[in-house]
Design a protein around this nucleic acid. Structure first.
Length: 329
DNA sequence: AAGCGCAACAACCGCCGCTCA
DNA sequence: ATGAGCGGCGGTTGTTGCGCT
């Protein structure tokens, strides 16, 4: 319908980029920008490349302020935490790591972090089975695998560097919410049917109530962006009304309404069901020896054999009270 | 020195949602 | 309202380099 056709694949070069190609692309974009049309770009500069390939090359390699390799421990932890929280949404994860690209993080995860974590977790399980590493009360911070612990939140809790970012609120009933910027907040909530408004101070907020027909779960979302704080709070009114709070420092805190004595309803039953292997993968990292994941047929069952209640779990988790983060209810 | 296996990274592929004509 | 084009994203594959035997 009047649009330029996508690149002619027969006349398009593939494979590694030559320095001259890089230079051409970089020089052009720095001078003229992308012009809002990646497909037309290679023809303009005389590159025999697909527009998508140009875009990828620019975003992942040529763009200014790109960092390659040399991931710090802090970045490792953040990636792990976010992966556990939101799964393989690499672009969102990348948005929280300045200078990193989604492709870089994805590669890093697939080639190193995943193995690193699996290694640690397996080791952990082996120790536990031997009784060397108790998971119940009294486990010292040094025994917690560093992969599930965050030190990048010193501003939130400078006393305790061992702050797990994503405690086990399974994905199963709450699709994880994550906020990278104001636009994301808006998009997410508008997609869910919310209404966006700005007040006279320029503070933006959304209030919405959305009914999900599949499981009669009522989601009450409230998002706000004020000065340097973004946060979104999501309360899921299931039988035990577990809540989740996510602030700009990536902490996602399960908050038990009214009290903190029990695990969310999912764990009251000590059983949860999922058919998503990725989620199970993430859960397996987190639960490690606490749960066993058995797959049979088209569904999997997670059995939390140790009956670890929320009180016990919270002994491993600190609830930050500073930095403007607050519980909605 | 050659062959092999593995790790790391770059790039491609295909799908999906949004936009535009 | 509809369908094609485009951009973005995640998964996968290909290539290269390194270490070990």
């Amino acid at each position: 319908m009047g649009r330029a056709p996508c690149c002619d694949k027969a006349n398009v070069k593939k494979g590694p980029w030559a320095p001259e190609e890089d230079a051409k692309l970089k020089a052009y974009i720095e001078e003229y920008g992308t012009g809002g049309n990646w497909i037309a770009l290679p023809q303009k500069i005389g590159l025999k490349r697909c527009g998508k390939s140009c875009r990828l090359r620019w975003l992942n390699y040529l763009r200014p302020n790109i960092k390659h390799g040399g991931f710090s421990e802090e970045e490792d932890r953040l990636i792990c935490s976010l992966y556990v929280s939101i799964g393989s949404r690499w672009s969102i994860i990348a948005s929280q790591l300045p200078g990193r690209t989604d492709n870089d993080i994805k590669n890093y995860w697939n080639t190193r972090l995943k193995k690193k974590l699996l290694g640690k977790q397996r080791k952990d399980q082996i120790y536990r089975r031997k009784g060397d590493l108790p998971m119940k009360k009294g486990r010292s911070p040094s025994e917690i695998p560093s992969s599930i612990v965050v030190s990048g939140n010193e501003n939130i809790n400078s006393q305790d560097p061992y702050l797990p970012v994503m405690p086990p609120v399974p994905y199963l009933y709450q699709e994880p919410t994550f906020v990278s910027d104001h636009t994301s907040i808006r998009k997410l909530l508008i997609n869910l049917g919310g209404k966006f408004s700005s007040d006279y101070n320029g503070n933006q907020s959304i209030n919405m109530v959305s009914q999900f027909p599949t499981d009669n779960t009522l989601i009450d979302l409230q998002a706000s962006s004020q000065d340097d704080h973004n946060f979104i709070a999501c309360s899921t009114h299931v039988s035990s009304s577990s809540s989740m709070l996510l602030n700009s420092q990536y902490n996602i805190l399960p908050i038990q309404e009214g009290q903190s004595g029990n695990f969310p309803s999912v764990f009251d039953q000590e059983l949860c069901y999922s058919t998503n292997p990725q989620k199970l993968d993430a859960l397996e990292f987190f639960y490690g020896g606490m749960c066993e994941i058995n797959t049979s047929g088209s569904s999997s069952v997670i059995t939390c054999g140790d009956s670890m209640d929320w009180g016990e779990m919270s002994s491993l988790i600190n609830t930050p009270t500073t930095n403007g983060a607050s519980c909605l209810r």
